[in-house]
Simulated assay, not measured.
Amino acid sequence: MVTAADSGDPLPVESSVWLAARPAAPARRRSEALSGLDRERITAATVRLLDAEGLARFSMRRLAAGLGVTAMSLYWYVDTKHDLLELALDRALGELALSSGPASEGWPGRLRTLARGYRRLLADHPWVAPLTAAYPNIGPHARAFDAALQRLLDATGLAGSARTGAHLAVSQFLHGCGGTARRAPEGDFCLALDVLIAGIEAKATA
């Protein structure tokens, strides 16, 4: 099955699993009931399988085999493979530490901490980067991450188009580093991040 991530076409927002109503699951066969299958368990297993085998090799059949259930039983909890990949993406984003850090660091220090954490996430889960480009990123953890970024940008004092531009620059920088998270040396990433922050600081004090 070709996914949005495979084809390069982004999934329309209205198709997101986070906007879909969840009807009650049909009665399960006794074998599935005894397996303890639920959406949380399926999502966690999806993350593990994506980490182990990558996005290109992921399939509902492989996932079901790892869980010891039939592939069709997975569709009692998600409508499509897209839904499951969206759920896995947001679960991975939930690993990010979003605490603002010591006030003494100021927004530049806290932004560095957030950016480095995001880079580590992309290195630990290489499949996250292509999925962030393919899916709407409106799950609870994705929204919490953006809210944390918005709070940091609020602290810069920028407003209007400058504020919008800063948000775009930081977002593009973080998402763009996904393809090089494993290859680019940490020092190079930190230098690029320092340049970005210096530009925001200069704009804020202009």
Rank of each mutant, 00 (worst) to 15 (best):
D6E: 11
V17Y: 12
L74E: 00
A52K: 10
P130K: 03
L63W: 00
A162W: 01
R110F: 02
G8M: 08
L98S: 02
G109Y: 02
D51M: 06
R41C: 03
L114G: 02
T46Y: 07
S73R: 08
A147D: 10
L19R: 15
R112F: 04
V69K: 03
D51Q: 14
R22V: 13
A204L: 01
R143W: 14
S31N: 11
A5Q: 04
D9E: 14
H125C: 06
A148M: 06
K81H: 10
P130N: 04
A134E: 06
V47G: 04
A192E: 12
D51I: 04
G165E: 02
R116C: 15
R112C: 04
T156A: 01
G117Q: 05
F189I: 07
A97N: 14
H175P: 09
G187V: 12
D9H: 13
A25H: 06
G94W: 04
D154M: 08
S73Q: 03
V17P: 08
T70R: 15
R29I: 08
A33W: 07
L96Y: 08
T43A: 12
A142L: 08
L34Y: 12
R39K: 13
L98T: 04
D9I: 14
P10M: 12
G109D: 04
E105A: 15
L37F: 00
R182I: 11
H141W: 10
L49T: 06
R39C: 09
H175C: 12
R39W: 14
S7I: 05
H125W: 01
L121R: 01
D51P: 08
P136W: 02
R151N: 10
T70F: 10
P12W: 12
L158E: 07
A148K: 05
L93H: 12
A198E: 13
L87D: 11
Y118H: 13
P26K: 09
E32L: 09
L191C: 10
L96I: 06
S31K: 10
F173I: 07
D38L: 10
S161A: 13
A64S: 07
P130I: 00
A133D: 13
D9N: 13
G94P: 05
A103G: 11
S7K: 02
L168R: 14
I42N: 00
Y75M: 04
R183I: 15
